[in-house]
């Protein structure tokens, strides 16, 4: 049933803004911009999906279909992860484009440069979002705003920490926050570790969310 559920997510549950948000990877082309904010915008899109889902009774209606509660949660995760993958692919493209076209613009004064490590940070931001938003959301799907506030506070702190780290933490400042292809192997390892964190966090978040949703009374 997963392909059908993913199709339902795309055709019925999706919010137009959520499909637009991945394209905000184009912000990589803006000089002196806190680039990780583009990852926050995607989480805003997920919030819109869940919010319009609440108004359209998406969860209750889906539960009348021949699907399990676990599949319902997994489909939402799957859809969000597809959006995230799409955004990261676009981010790679815009990072590459920036390196080609704006190589002479110098370093980003507002945090991480648009480079390979920024893609790795995307995985970290998504991992934090999965851990903070979904378990809270699937405890009570009517309280979308509360769940989003929790994840937004966390992501806001992470963006701030990232900007500070680019000035104060030597590894961030001297290795990661450098234009490509400088320190490429180190950035590649960083990217791999972040992707691993993302996979583990998503798996843990999925399991907790499924367990909580299994106990949830829909009103």
């Amino acid at each position: 049933m997963m392909p059908n559920l993913l199709r339902k997510e795309l055709r019925l549950a999706r919010h137009p803004a959520a499909l637009f948000m991945p394209w905000l990877s184009v912000l990589c082309l803006v000089p002196n911009y806190p680039y990780p904010v583009m990852y926050f915008y995607l989480t805003l899109g997920v919030f819109f999906i869940c919010m319009s889902g609440r108004e359209n009774n998406d969860v209750g209606f889906t539960l009348t279909l021949p699907v399990t509660r676990r599949e319902l949660v997994a489909a939402r995760f799957g859809f969000v992860m597809l959006l995230e993958a799409f955004q990261l692919l676009l981010a790679c493209a815009f990072v590459a484009l920036r390196a080609l076209v704006f190589a002479d613009r110098g370093s980003n004064a507002a945090g991480m440069d648009a480079n390979l490590a920024l893609i790795g940070e995307g995985f970290l931001f998504y991992a934090a979002f999965h851990l903070s938003f979904f378990p809270s959301y699937y405890r009570d799907v009517t309280r979308v705003g509360v769940s989003f506030v929790k994840s937004s506070v966390l992501l806001g702190l992470m963006v701030t920490a990232e900007i500070v780290a680019c000035y104060a933490v030597p590894f961030w400042r001297d290795t990661l926050d450098r234009p490509d292809p400088e320190h490429f192997p180190a950035k590649l390892v960083f990217l791999g570790l972040c992707a691993l964190c993302y996979a583990l966090a998503s798996f843990a978040s999925l399991r907790v969310s499924q367990r909580r949703f299994a106990r949830l009374d829909l009103r």
Partner: peptide, 24 residues
């Protein structure tokens, strides 16, 4: 299961809804 007052996808056409649900 049908419930009076059950809201569902207010801005999607019935055709789109049916096309999406049929494969289930």
């Amino acid at each position: 299961f049908v419930s009076a007052g059950m809201r569902f996808y207010q801005r999607q056409s019935l055709k789109r809804i049916t096309d999406t649900l049929r494969p289930f």
